[in-house]
Design a protein around this nucleic acid. Structure first.
Lengths: 121, 121
DNA sequence: GATACTCCTTTCCTAAAGTATACCGGTTTC
DNA sequence: GAAACCGGTATACTTTAGGAAAGGAGTATC
């Protein structure tokens, strides 16, 4: 890193890797919806499907697996009958909240900016 | 918003909009590379293409247009001969830095976490 | 024993994102 | 006047994300 905190090309490329990691975790059409829904508390598969308008079972299942792999959510199978499966945000999953807040702040400011611009035209 | 800062379903869906706006601005395979490269200072088209390994002229041109539309970068044509076109991050573009830092922090922590996990296995 | 509910999986398909390759007009260099 | 550099465009292709629809194993209900 040079005097002004500007990175060299290699450092820059390297510093993009964690950013991409972070984005990978939340990207796609549904992951944020799932996380958002689980912020309210644990939910079952069908609960989530009902809660998230438009999601198909395939996508829900697929995204839940990805989120679980990243340890952002937990999957608990209760051996009742009929079987009950509960999904919940892990403690780690809650650390995303700060990032989401930052994204929301920037994004909502950006939205205002774009609106103002289209007003002017 | 209820007592604990938890949102209702409608509020939650609504609060995702700005997040999606923010993500839209930086998503795709190349935008962050372009922004990263321009953090070093203004660059010409070919400079960027050389700087960003693997990007095609089509993608570069396309992404530059998108970033310019969002007012994150400026495009200046110098009427010299041969014509020179310079791209630079705008002041507004620099406001992304904080967001990127936040993403990098979370992402690099996440990366450590994943590494540790795969070590354990 | 038919219907329905839960928790998914499988297959097929489309639309969007990204890649490869070639090219264009202008200019400068050799 | 051929070759090379600049700032792109155009066209065709591949890859990936996501959607639609069906089904399946287990249980419970009537």
């Amino acid at each position: 890193m040079d005097q002004a905190g500007i990175l060299t090309k290699e450092e820059c490329t390297k510093s993009l890797l964690p950013i991409k990691d972070a984005l990978e975790v939340i990207n796609g059409k549904w992951k944020l919806h799932i996380i958002g829904s689980l912020l309210h508390g644990e939910k079952r598969f069908k609960d989530l499907q009902r809660d998230i308008t438009g999601i198909t079972a395939k996508m829900l299942s697929q995204e839940l697996k990805a989120l679980e792999m990243h340890e952002l959510i937990s999957r608990t199978v209760y051996d009742s009958s009929p079987v009950v499966v509960e999904y919940a945000l892990t403690e780690y999953g809650h650390t995303l909240k700060r990032l989401m807040d930052e994204l929301r702040v920037w994004g909502s400011n950006h939205r205002k900016r774009i609106m103002k611009k289209s007003d002017a035209v």
